Computed example of a mutant assay.
Amino acid sequence: MRLWSVDPSILDRMALVACWREALLAQKVLDGGTRGYTRHPQLERFRARDEPLDAIGHYLASLHAEATARGYSFDASRIVRRDAASPGIPVTTGQLGFELAHLRSKVAVRDPAWLERLPAVARAAPSFVATPGAVETWERGVLAP
C-alpha cells in the first residue's frame, strides 16, 4: 500500500490511479470493513487523527480533485466523508524527499516523459503539513539514521 504524501499533481497516471484504489482500501480498513491490512504502517498517521474517516476522506477528495482536473472519472460517491476539513497530518521533509525519489525511479521506467514534470522538491499533499525531519519511522525498507 502506497498512500503518497507528495502532492497528487506530481503523480503520474499509474501512481494516481493506484493511490486512489489503495486509499479506498485504507478507508475500508479504517471503517472496519475488512480484516486485511489493519496493521499497515501507513495507516498509523490516519488513525492518529481524532476522526480517521475524515482524514482519509479529505485525502481521497484531494486525489479525486486531481483526477477530475486531468479528465479522469473517479467515483466520488465512494468517499465516505468527502467534505472533511484538512486533517493537517504532519509529514517530514525527509519522507517527502524519499517519496519523490521513489516516484522518480518508478516514472523513469514506466513514463520517462513525466520525469520533466517532477519538481526538485516535493510539496506535501493537501492532507499533510510538511515538518523538518528524516524519513518517517513507518516507512518500510529504509534504514534508520
Rank of each mutant, 00 (worst) to 15 (best):
H40D: 10
A130S: 12
F74Q: 03
P41D: 00
A84C: 12
I56K: 01
R117Y: 08
M14Q: 13
A122P: 10
R82T: 00
D75G: 01
V129E: 04
E139F: 06
A48D: 13
G97S: 12
P8C: 05
Y72P: 02
R110P: 12
P145I: 10
W138R: 12
V121L: 12
R81L: 09
R104S: 08
Q27P: 09
F98V: 00
A120C: 06
I89G: 03
G71E: 04
I89L: 10
A101Y: 04
V135L: 10
I10Q: 04
G32M: 11
V135A: 05
I10M: 11
S77D: 13
A144F: 09
S86D: 05
G94A: 06
A61G: 00
R123V: 02
F98N: 09
R81Q: 12
E136F: 04
E22N: 13
H40K: 12
T68P: 01
A26S: 09
V17M: 11
P90K: 08
Q95P: 04
R117P: 00
I10W: 06
R104T: 15
A69W: 06
A15W: 02
C19V: 08
E66S: 03
I56A: 02
G94N: 08
D83I: 05
D75N: 14
F128V: 08
D50R: 15
P126M: 11
H40C: 01
R78N: 01
G36I: 09
R21L: 07
V121P: 01
R21C: 02
V29G: 01
K106D: 01
T93Y: 03
L100E: 00
L143N: 06
V29I: 13
R13W: 10
Q27C: 04
A65P: 04
E116I: 14
E139V: 15
A101P: 02
W114Y: 11
Y59I: 10
Q95F: 05
W4A: 02
G33C: 04
L115Q: 03
L103E: 07
W20Y: 10
A69R: 15
T34G: 02
G36E: 10
A55S: 09
S127E: 15
A125E: 12
T93F: 03
W4F: 06
A130Y: 06
G57Q: 05
L11R: 03
H58S: 04
E66G: 04
K28S: 13
A108L: 13
S77L: 12
S73D: 15
L96K: 07
A144L: 12
R2Y: 14
A26V: 10
L16R: 11
Y72Q: 08
V91K: 01
R82V: 01
S9I: 14
S9K: 15
R123C: 08
E66N: 05
R21A: 12
A65H: 07
G57H: 09
T68L: 15
V109L: 15
H64P: 00
Y37E: 06
A69V: 03
R49Y: 00
E139P: 00
H64T: 00
I79A: 03
T38V: 15
R39K: 14
M14V: 15
T34A: 02
V129Q: 06
E51N: 14
S77R: 15
D12W: 13
D7L: 07
E66A: 06
S77G: 02
S5H: 14
D7I: 10
E44A: 13
T38W: 10
A101W: 09
S9P: 02
D54S: 14
R104Y: 11
P8S: 02
